[in-house]
Design a protein around this nucleic acid. Structure first.
Lengths: 199, 199
DNA sequence: CATTTTAAGATACCAGGGTATACTATTCAA
DNA sequence: TTGAATAGTATACCCTGGTATCTTAAAATG
């Protein structure tokens, strides 16, 4: 009996190994949460060595983020088009809540703040390959609103375009649970006034 | 000669010791910045033992914050009253910049994010004894604006009142330097539209 | 004063993030 | 086929935040 299965290489490499690590990280994240997630445990569970992790990810928070990106609920790329800016925004951010609800926010405690050490808030939703999906979605929603005459897109500065991400992250970091009520408040009290200020 | 003067007590206690620690922390903060500030170094410089630090402050970021509160530039309690909400806001937040400019923001890298692990954003400016001065100031500025008919104060929700702090913190966390240009942009593009949305 | 209580001192320790090193299995180019 | 380059494995190590323990000075109590 030899290498029947083709792949029982003594050493996994590249994508193989990477997947094993991410998978282990994802499982542990679900079991113990970000705070109690340790690099050593991930390595052990993946039958890999710690340096392997650090060769691929600069730090624990990046690794965790990658795992969530890979195994977590996918952002519904469907951009709502309800015919009203308000409804579109509420609908869209309502979808975002899910990512945090799947675990319960305690399991993610510390992740966001750790991420903020290396990257600015607006970039939190960027993946390495793809661009900031959240940002793009918001822009599309706003352009749809422009077609209906609700605002003038080119009047919106980058800072204003980032505002939704910033406010959303803020809620998450503030350790409160982000409910639909919170979302509608943010939209009504802040986002709509800002977006339509130059309509 | 009684010991009331406590000239060379072998052991400092209470406020004495606390001041020594805070002073050491402040000096080290200026020398090496928050990231390279270590509890051991603070203790050593203050000729104190590490447990002394942890008996008074729950963690490194709290100790650093206390030191800054004690020795850093005082927030000018003077609330501007220029006759225009816009100018008042710009003036006030312009004052805040100073705290971060004294060091250069790199020296404070990590402090804010560490603080966010234990307290929500809006509370970052609260001290243990006094209430949130920043918050109070913003409210006063807004009430002055109400007198001039620029807005209706009671229409502003807590979330909206916290917005200035949130945006300011966000800029700091984003590792960009917060300039006056940034401040005026924030005021013009975001704060004014939001505050006056219900005028 | 004498005794009790409080808190500082000294120090050892633990856990976890992150790095360095020496060695070896794979891949790939020649 | 062989040899160099690449990237795993194993493991020891460093650093620092934070804790535990034991001793002892000082303050408070009476």
């Amino acid at each position: 009996m030899s290498k029947i299965e083709t792949n029982h290489p003594k050493r996994r490499r590249g994508a193989d190994l990477e997947n094993a690590v991410l998978s282990s990280a994802w499982q542990l994240l679900n079991e113990v949460g970000y705070h109690d997630l340790t690099m050593a445990a991930i390595a052990k569970k993946a039958n890999a060595a710690k340096p392997v992790l650090y060769r691929r990810w600069p730090d624990k928070s990046s690794l965790a983020a990658s795992a969530i990106l890979k195994f977590g609920p996918k952002l519904d790329v469907k951009i709502p088009d309800t015919g009203s800016l308000r409804e579109d925004l509420i609908d869209f951010f309502g979808q975002l809540i899910k990512i945090f609800d799947i675990f319960g926010t305690e399991k993610l405690n510390g992740l966001v703040t750790d991420r903020l050490k290396s990257i600015p808030m607006e970039k939190l939703f960027e993946t390495s390959n793809s661009d900031n999906k959240l940002q793009k979605s918001v822009e599309e929603i706003l352009k749809n609103a422009e077609k209906r005459g609700e605002l003038v897109f080119k009047n919106l500065s980058p800072r204003v375009l980032h505002l939704p991400s910033v406010l959303f992250i803020n809620e998450v970091v503030s350790q409160e649970s982000v409910t639909m009520a919170v979302i509608t408040d943010i939209v009504d009290e802040i986002l709509l006034p800002v977006f339509t200020a130059n309509s």
